[in-house]
Structure formats: C-alpha cells, structure tokens
Amino acid sequence: MKKIIAIIRDEKAYQTKTLLKSIGVQYIIDSHVRGRGKQKGFIRVPDGLAIFRRDSGVHLLQHPATESFIDISGQQIQIEKVSVSCFVPKRMLIIIAEDRDVSPIVDTIIRLNKTGRPGDGKIFICPIVYSTDIEDNDNVP
C-alpha cells in the first residue's frame, strides 16, 4: 500500500475531491496547511513589477525602484530586506491506496491541478507498512 500526500491549491481542493470520488477513491484526509516551495512563497503578478506576498492575509506590493512597500491601505512601510519567511495557504490531501491505484490517482490530481504557474503543488508517495480498520480485531504483524 502507498500513502499519497498531495499538496495542492486551496481553491482546487473541492474539485479534486469530487473527481477523485468519481474514480473510486473513498477515503481522503483533507487538512488546511501552509507551505511554500522553491519560489519561497512569492507570487509574481503579471506585470512583473511587483511581488505579491500572501501570508496570513498580509498583502504587500514591492516597488523595485524605491525598495519600500505599500500596503493595501496605501501607507508606505520601510522594510530593510524582503523576508522570505512567508507561507501560502494550501490544502494537503492524504490518500491511502493500493499499489495499482497510485498511478491513476496521481494522473487525476495532476490533470486537474496543473495550471503551469508556480504554486501548483507537489505529490509525494510514501510506503505504508500496515493498515487496518480500528473496528477489526486482527493482530498487528
């Protein structure tokens, strides 16, 4: 058996769960996490001039010429350097599946969540040694 840990966009979680249910996945653990990847949590807006930071509701715009920040209300904030310590809200789905089911599940998650922009997420596949229903009384190997 395998454990599939998929870290995906927050807004795609409902669609993903619905689609996974339609291909026969019955048990999903879903939790709200925060994370970041190689891009360190920064999201470049399309004009390329500003860095959009999403961390616990704080939105900052950086202007490269002045090296200062303007927050949403229009006030100017002086910050010495850009902190990379920001985490983006993400959703973590944990699916326990048989070995033969791993490939279709991974394909489904990738097909729905792929947008081509940074922040799409990652999928990790880990081995599971043993699993049982709690109401069953069989012995642990």
Partner: peptide, 12 residues
C-alpha cells in the same frame, strides 16, 4: 520517513 516518488504538478 521514506519517500518513494515525488511529482511536481506544474510540470508533471
């Protein structure tokens, strides 16, 4: 723990 495989969704 072990990780057997890892996928990046953006590039599949």
């Amino acid at each position: 723990t072990y990780v057997e495989d890892s996928y990046t969704i953006r590039t599949a």
